[in-house]
Amino acid sequence: MQLVRWCVARLVATRDLTHDIRLFVIDPAEGDASSGSASSFVAPTPGSHIQVEVLIGGRVETRSYSTVGPCADGLYRIAVKRLAASRGGSAYMWSLTPGARLKIAHPRNQFELAWAKPAYLLLAGGIGITPIYSMALALVAAGADVRLIYGVRTAADLAFAEELRAELGDRLSLFVDAEGEKIDLDREIAALAPGGEFYVCGPLGLMDAARQAWTRSGRAAVLMRFETFGNSGRFANQPFHVAIPRLDLAFDVAAEETLLDALEKAGVAMISDCRKGECGLCVLPILSADGPLDHRDVFFSSGEKAENSKICTCVSRLAGGILSLDTPDRRA
């Protein structure tokens, strides 16, 4: 089990990797010095993330960002994509300049790489490259049989392409959507050695396609690993209305807030845990929806999603319209 340990850290430097992905170099020792504790840098293993406290509309929230590379100099590196039309964590991070103080939690890993497997297929889409990049470097260093497929919308969205090319050579395949390049997942999976593992990080559409292709291949489900942030769906974020007849409540959910946040703000008692669409604790029953439901979780099966009878409120939303929900509140 991994304890979450928070510390005060200092932003040492930033570097723009693309027009909307910025690398942040963070020194955790800085904060330790002021608190008098010993240096507490923890070398992140591939797939790790750190949590960062961000200020959103004056409120403190936490965001998780994958660490980038081995961080061999004792400084944490994360890459943050600035999300358009967002007042959220990414906008806060992008507002920071070197020297800024940050509260961070040391690395934890929920997307761990298994070692000594016969082969590895890595698939990254967009900002999903961050954990996959660290995995690729580590696997190359270990002499593993590894192949990386990296898809982006436009050539300008490519981050780490040169570094990856230098490390992987022709074991790297880049796909640029705008240039009509399509990833043939079935073929890539078929070329993976038996017992090989598949690691995926990217937008929901890519992840769904990858899972379907993996299922079609007949390979064991446990050999496919993925990490999800629940922040992408079939539709762009749009505001929508919520009605809760049981509580005689009606309120709006803004484009940049989650349904769960809006429920809590409206005073609805909720339980939740992962806040990334994995655990299923924040699920509420749907009474009706007059707009398209955008299920962004990985808790429900595709069959359950098609029923549209429940919603994972931490990540899923309505693409405009009125969503009528029930809650577990009962009279004493």
Binding site: A114, V222, R225, E227, C274, F299, G303
Partner: peptide, 21 residues
């Protein structure tokens, strides 16, 4: 959990939390 430590079954749900290991 399988011999690699990965969760292969969770009760009362149709999916498996991808972090579970």
């Amino acid at each position: 959990f399988d011999g690699g430590g990965r969760c292969t079954y969770m009760p009362a749900q149709k999916t498996i939390n991808p972090s579970a290991a």
